[in-house]
Design a protein around this nucleic acid. Structure first.
Lengths: 350, 350
DNA sequence: CTGAAAGCGCTTACAG
DNA sequence: CTGAAAGCGCTTACAG
């Protein structure tokens, strides 16, 4: 069935085999203009047979060059992915399919590129018009200036970011700060004064980084504002790795004057902390109140159900739809801020 | 700096601005032929200035069409990803960069497509020559016939699969069966006769599926062959979801005549099972031996360290290098089988 | 050392 | 209802 090795068959070959012009082949394969100038069923049949026989496959390079769009969009995120990103990808796939778009993913390294910068940069996919648009999840290490350049160059862009001004692209603002502040307030209201923090490594390594240490900084600021500043001895690493979260929590519980509440920079870390506490015979939230950050899928399935902050529902219809509006529009949309606020979700663990 | 809205600048615009021909622009930007016919430093300088000034960005459609390759490869996997796939992606990125290739990911839905099949299919990226090659991780639901068609159509392909013959593409055979059989033998040697199985949902839903239920089928077959067939009451779901693994393990331990050993279809499930057992006061491996499958990164970090089966090292240099050989070669490589056998890794939990 | 020109595979206004 | 032809942005053998 498939063509012989060598040059892959083109529409010219199909046209020749079916005895029609390439225009006819193109109309039939792309499904356009059918109503205006219908092709006779026999012609169509003949062409489709030739396609089958030659093993013809459309080559998008030609189409993209001519149509000036690739009909591909990209979900950009920082490895590893998470349920959040997967849900986003699914929705991009579903909503994009309606306008004939396919989705690819661009997983970016979790660490800033080493020197010398690798050639080609992974960002080539965005820079050289391989895709018509992209959704950038929060946490990637792409520079704001790069994003502005990409948008100026014609890429349709929707960016999840908490501290960035729209500039030719839309910014989905998770408004994490107020929810995190609410969480701190909630714990203080419950009477806690010794509050610990289970951190991601990067937060301890670069506590001043506005983006990477946003959670840590916000929690620390809220506590300080309430007159109960974070005790450095109650700040421990481990939110990244399950077993370390477990060990560090047990260590915290054994120090003199241990915390009565613990905020974990990840839901995962919080769940491990719950187990760590229980294994030591401590009750949650009685002896130790524990809260996560992120509102992952596991938090509501465990006992005690996890108090956390995050998006109440993983529904990205608005930003995803916006991306395709941008792609469809002549390119004249300004940049909007799309608020998608995190919320405090109080369950049983605090 | 960037061009005004409207048509994006092309090499023609750059050439006009710099007062040279498009050929010169192209040579400078692509870096080819420089040694054969060097461009004078001034010309180069002038062109690069024009590029900067116009905000010119290469458009890969034109290049791909002309060069007959996209310089893009794709890692195809089934959502969600896992450390295994991430490692593979990293290595594709690193090794590909040496030949000027960028990597994208194509995450496929975890369930077979609903009827009617969505248009466009996510496989369009592979079918319509968006990429020059792809590595397909194991577990995707792509039909073998589809893989053969893609290879016949000229796509360079390396497929991780345990039950597939090479056919214009290479097959990385994980040889999972013998390692799984070894695991069963190991437990039997230790004197276990009541062995339980913590399954992925799909294994219970489609136990006859050669690909999706390979682990379950192999374990069951090995036990049956040893004269100790799997007791259906000892087969429980939960390997997919942490909390369910925990609950189901505790349930298993409370039944009359409980298992003395448990094989989990995932490392993650096994780790949760360890915690579940310990929370009930059962010792591991004393009261319950527990083994995982997959050799993820967490298994060696916990106590007791997890016995598991999987790849001893996450080194995919051979298959990844092979992919780029395929891409580079005139296209005349046959299909090879690349064995990359799983092994039994005995640690402390059994 | 540089430029004019052909052509990669497709789409699409236009003429018939 | 169908075909001839131009052209999308780039690369590259070839002529100068």
């Amino acid at each position: 069935m498939p063509e012989k090795a060598g040059r892959a068959p083109t529409q010219r070959d199909v046209a020749a085999a079916a005895g029609v012009s390439t225009a006819t082949v193109s109309y039939i394969l792309s499904g356009r203009r059918d109503r205006v100038t219908p092709v006779t069923p026999e012609t169509r049949e003949r062409v489709l047979r030739a396609v089958e026989q030659l093993g013809y496959r459309l080559d998008h390079s030609g189409r993209s060059l001519r149509r000036r769009r690739t009909e591909l969009v990209c979900v950009v995120y920082r490895m590893p992915d998470n349920p959040w990103v997967e849900r986003l990808a699914e929705q991009v796939q579903t909503i994009g399919a309606r306008s004939g778009y396919s989705m690819i993913a661009l997983p970016l390294p979790s660490r800033p590129p080493a020197e010398p910068v690798p050639r080609p940069s992974p960002l080539r996919v965005l820079r050289e018009r391989y895709v018509d648009g992209a959704i950038v999840a929060n946490g990637t290490l792409i520079e704001p200036a790069e994003l502005r350049r990409l948008a100026a160059g014609g890429l349709s862009l929707v960016v999840f970011h908490d501290a960035l001004a729209p500039a030719g692209f839309d910014v989905v603002d998770l408004v994490q700060r107020s929810a995190l502040t609410d969480l701190v307030g909630h714990l203080l209201d419950r009477g806690h004064t010794r509050i610990g923090y289970l951190a991601h490594d990067v937060e301890l390594a670069a506590p001043d980084d506005e983006v990477q240490s946003l959670k840590y900084r916000t929690v620390a600021a809220a506590l300080a504002a309430a007159g109960a500043p974070l005790d450095p001895r109650l700040v421990v690493p481990g939110a990244d790795v399950r077993e370390r979260a477990y060990v560090e929590t047990q260590r915290l519980l054994r120090i003199e004057n241990p915390p009565t509440a613990l905020i974990s920079s990840s839901d995962r870390g919080a769940i491990d902390a719950i187990w760590a506490a229980r294994d030591l015979g401590a009750s949650v939230p009685g002896d130790l109140a524990i809260a996560g950050i992120g509102n992952g899928t596991e938090g509501s399935a465990i006992r005690p159900a996890l108090t956390t902050v995050g998006l109440p529902r993983l529904d990205f219809t608005v930003p995803v739809t916006r991306l395709f509006e941008r792609i469809t529009a002549p390119g004249e949309l300004p940049g909007d801020r799309i608020p998608q606020p995190w919320q405090l979700i109080v369950r049983e663990s605090t």
